[in-house]
Design a protein around this nucleic acid. Structure first.
Length: 512
DNA sequence: TCCGGTGTTGGTGTA
DNA sequence: GTACACCAACACCGG
């Protein structure tokens, strides 16, 4: 329980503020300009901090936002405020582990008691690894088996009430506002006029409202199957609760148990495709990120296939800036930049396109772009999913390539999604909206959009380049298996591979 | 140790 | 409309 003089730091909410600082305030601002947090994410975070401050004020307290490098700021504060206790939420990201270790040892030097809680994930991630014999599970099934053994996640505890806080005094004056107030976009040197409508305001209140709104739809929750939700609907086909979970506005455990309530006594979908399943995917990638070295890199990452990706700044810029000439891809990248959220399958489409599908650019480059632009950008999930999509780890069927033309058509024949985000194409007829370069000149003129002038030509020939890339992936995999295993055991593996065609024939004969 | 089945969410062509 | 083979042939799991 809180006592006089306690310092409460809400760790998940101020992560970005404390990240990558230089030596002083100026350098910290510099890191904002070049760093990994885009303006939409800043806006979300600021909203979340305002909401948190608002909730704390209802408890006769407030939020203090510190500016500077944690190892400089904390020792001063320990002395100035006579701090006796420091509490934080355990965070498994390497940057955070390092920071928290430093701050913890400084706290001990100042005789400040440090208490941390594991609450960002459903389970204690290290416990999952331990249960699997010291290794992170590399398949979802394996993770499922482990959590089965561990039982359901802990129940969330309720937020503090006014009566819990009755002996707590938080002294502050108007002067504190200047020093400890919540930063504004202007203070961060960001141009807010470029911002679009705030579709997903940050904060716990909004998170809980959004959760309620979705949990009311019992039938929808019970029949939810992620792969069946369209990536290109005009409004999101999934909950968009991920940014709230990422920033600690919504506890994964609260989400989990609310779902359990909705499921109770009803027929419902199951992991991996259900909503429970989505939370377990989060757990899956968190476990990988803790148990696998260099998880956000290809080199030095033991589970990651080593691929000779190209360095192609022109292609990368075209992808990032939504000018690949493939309307489906460009529309998704536009939505990402404008709104900070895109559907999971839309992420698949653009990630496959950037890496193994078309442009043959390293998934690490895509990872950087997503980290900056996604409201729900999460270190572990971002790295894990990019490895998945590029068929570098976890997923290996590299010959399954998303078509930048056909994939979107399945759920949006008329291309309304494309027209929404690429207004330049809005007069294109459905027959050509996914492939405007195929439209006759007269159609382009009638649509008021000439390909090559008003909208770019496609930067690659998908049919050709994707076939070539499958071959390159095949080579990377072949190299992988020969590198990993030069022992005679692998000889048999090779033999088996060579026999696979006849094996298939035999199988066919047996069936008949 | 071997074998067969499976893997959250592909595309295309044919019957 | 739907089911299936094919693309090419990996990693992992369980029997």
């Amino acid at each position: 329980m809180l006592q006089n003089g306690d310092l409460v730091i809400i760790q998940t909410c101020n992560k970005a503020l404390l990240k990558d600082p230089g030596k002083g305030y100026q350098e910290w601002l510099l890191c904002v300009f070049t760093g990994s947090v885009g303006i939409n994410r800043w806006r979300f975070l600021i909203g979340a901090l305002k909401d948190l401050d608002c909730s704390l004020r209802k408890l006769n307290s407030r939020l203090f936002v510190l500016r500077g490098k944690p190892e400089d700021v904390f020792p001063k504060l320990f002395n100035e405020w006579n701090v006796t206790k420091l509490t934080y939420e355990y965070d498994t990201e390497p940057y955070s582990l390092n920071r928290d270790e430093k701050v913890t040892s400084l706290a001990r030097e100042h005789e400040v008691e440090v208490i941390y809680k594991i609450s960002h994930t459903l389970y204690n991630i290290e416990r999952i690894i331990e249960e699997n014999g010291g290794k992170p599970p590399l398949t979802y099934k394996c993770l499922q088996a482990i959590v089965q053994k561990l039982g359901p996640p802990k129940k969330p505890i309720s937020a503090p009430h006014l009566e819990n806080m009755k002996d707590v005094k938080t002294p502050w004056s108007e002067k504190s506002e200047e020093k400890y107030g919540i930063p504004t976009l202007e203070e961060l040197g960001l141009e807010s006029t470029s911002l679009g409508e705030e579709l997903f305001p940050g904060g716990e209140q909004e998170a809980l409202r959004r959760l309620d709104e979705h949990m009311k739809k019992t039938a929808w929750v019970c029949s939810f199957e992620k792969p069946k939700t369209p990536p290109n609907s005009l409004s999101p086909s999934t909950t968009v609760l991920s940014p709230y979970v990422t920033f600690g506005c919504l506890s994964a455990r609260t989400f989990w148990w609310r779902l359990t309530e909705v499921y109770r006594g009803r027929k419902h979908s199951d992991p991996p495709v259900s909503l429970h399943g989505q939370l377990l995917w989060r757990e899956f990638f968190y476990t990988g990120s803790v148990g696998i070295n260099n998880f956000n890199k290809m080199e030095g990452n033991p589970v990651c296939t080593q691929v000779d990706w190209d360095t192609n700044p022109e292609y990368l810029a075209a992808w990032r800036e939504a000018r690949t000439g493939f309307p489906f891809i460009d529309a998704i990248m536009t939505q990402l930049r404008q709104e900070g959220w895109i559907h999971h399958l839309a992420r698949h489409a653009v990630a496959c396109f950037l890496t193994r599908g078309d442009l043959w650019i390293s998934w690490e480059e895509g990872q950087k772009v997503f980290e900056k632009l996604l409201l729900d950008g999460d270190w572990a999930l971002n790295a894990g999913n990019w490895q998945w999509l590029s068929a570098s780890a976890f997923f290996h069927q590299f010959f399954r390539v998303y078509s930048p033309i056909a994939f979107g058509k399945k759920t949006d024949k008329t291309g309304d999604y494309i027209k929404k985000y690429l207004p330049v194409l809005k007069k294109f007829p459905p027959d050509y909206i996914y492939e405007p370069w195929k439209a006759p000149r007269s159609v382009q003129q009638a649509a008021g959009c000439i390909v090559g002038k008003d909208y770019p030509h496609p930067i690659v020939l998908h049919e050709q380049v994707s076939k070539k890339n499958i071959q390159r992936m095949k080579e990377a995999y072949a190299k992988r298996s020969s590198d990993c295993n030069e022992s005679p055991i692998k000889e048999q593996g090779v033999k088996r591979k060579a026999l696979s065609v006849s094996e298939m024939l035999q199988k066919k004969i047996r069936k008949e």
